[in-house]
């Protein structure tokens, strides 16, 4: 399923829609960047409470399909600016990572 379709189905708020609409092939939840770096797989949609600009670098390096900032956290201005520059798709949601992951597992 494409990231945009998944976002629409889950009612996610779009922070930045990257030019490339990536296929979501898995899901990873994590907030410690080093752990995400080593464990997230290419194509995963990444659910995190982190909203600072460093999530953009992790997204580029891991090749994840999109970021979802969960639990009502809001992306920093720097995060949005860098996402626009680097073609990274970011969504936001008030839901918990667990609640979203349960739904995602049924959709992909």
């Amino acid at each position: 399923m494409l990231a945009s379709e998944l976002a629409k189905t889950l009612g996610l708020e779009t922070v930045n829609a990257g030019e490339t609409d990536n296929e979501v092939t898995g899901c990873y939840i994590g907030d410690m960047l080093s752990v995400v770096m080593s464990r997230a797989e290419e194509g995963d949609i990444w659910l995190t409470v982190q909203a600072n600009v460093n999530i953009d670098a992790v997204a580029v390096l891991t090749g994840i399909s999109a970021i979802v900032i969960v639990e009502g956290m809001k992306a920093d201005e720097d995060t949005v600016a860098k996402a626009k520059a680097q073609d990274i798709t970011i969504y936001q949601s008030d839901d918990t990572a667990y609640a979203l992951a349960c739904k995602i597992s049924e959709l992909i």
Binding site: D31, M32, L33, S34, V35, M37, S38, T48, Q50, N52, N54, I55
Partner: peptide, 15 residues
């Protein structure tokens, strides 16, 4: 900011 997991050098060794 999400750093300080204590995985920096271990990840470098692993990868």
């Amino acid at each position: 900011l999400g750093f300080g997991a204590g995985m920096g050098l271990p990840n470098m060794k692993k990868y």
